[in-house]
Nucleic acid binder design. Structure first.
Lengths: 147, 147
DNA sequence: AGGAAAAAGTTGTCCGGACAAGGAATGCTC
DNA sequence: GAGCATTCCTTGTCCGGACAACTTTTTCCT
């Protein structure tokens, strides 16, 4: 089973473990994996349109719309019409979300710490480089479709 | 945004691209990412219980149950009670699924080819090693929970 | 043997991710 | 300025993934 597509299997398994770890680290903040990315983007870059969140997080419009609806229902985020473009919606983090910021940042710190484990700094850089190489390949593959 | 948790972000992005690529490669076989893994396991290891599929694929029981229900509805898989354990269900690929095998294997070949890109064999081994290191860390983190 | 614990599946619910389709507003082009 | 394409967002649908709760059966332990 692991014989077919070793790289792909490795990516697959690593991703699954990673996602499960995020989920567990976010558990006590009440967020699901993905939601914390939205909040982090809002905290860091301020109020912005949904399409900006979509492009910066790499999600897609329907997913983002529903995700924001849930965050809105939880009171963590507010929607406001754009004053300059009546199609657009401006999303911003509410003050009620602020207490979560420390938790989320701690969770991401832990995530990185656990992911990196006991690796030395150079080894870590090496791995980052490896992932960047894969990412480049996959991005290239994205456009060169057909089969 | 990319400043926080570079490793985690890299894993995240790579995984998303990878999954999207699988989805596209499987498109014309009519399968969704994940379903092909079930079929591959059945083709390779023969009829088996759902729990065996769960452990070998790393999924979980509810997901597997519903995934198999869909494959069953599509006629690609059949359920049969276990003769030795009345709790268990034996799952097997149907003859109707056989024509898909070549497509699925081709898709996985393409996936691996595109993921590896133009990397040299040693470089590829290096990256595999890097992913294995991350996987080991994440597996270790899985058990050492608490925070 | 008997009863508790564990295992195998199912169903309910919620979430993110993806595709299709469509409405509303904007921008562009002729 | 009129018409068409594009952009932004929403809704419907389907899927995989995860957690909880439950039923049925098996296993284990006393």
């Amino acid at each position: 089973m692991a014989a077919v597509g070793p790289l792909s299997h490795a990516v697959f398994r690593t991703a699954r473990l990673h996602k499960a770890l995020v989920a567990r680290l976010l558990r006590d903040s009440g967020l699901r994996p993905g939601q914390e990315l939205v909040l982090m983007a809002l905290w860091q870059d301020g109020p912005q349109r949904q399409v900006d969140l979509v492009t910066s997080l790499g999600s897609d419009a329907p997913t983002m719309a529903r995700s924001i609806t849930r965050l809105e229902r939880a009171g963590l985020v507010a929607r406001r019409p754009s004053p300059t473009d009546r199609r657009a919606v401006i999303v911003e983090a509410t003050p009620a979300a602020l207490p979560l910021r420390a938790k989320v940042e701690h969770a991401w710190g832990e995530l990185e710490r656990l992911t990196a484990g006991a690796l030395s700094a150079p080894r870590r850089a090496e791995i980052l480089d490896a992932l960047a190489a894969l990412e480049a390949n996959l991005t290239a593959a994205e456009t060169a479709v057909d089969s």
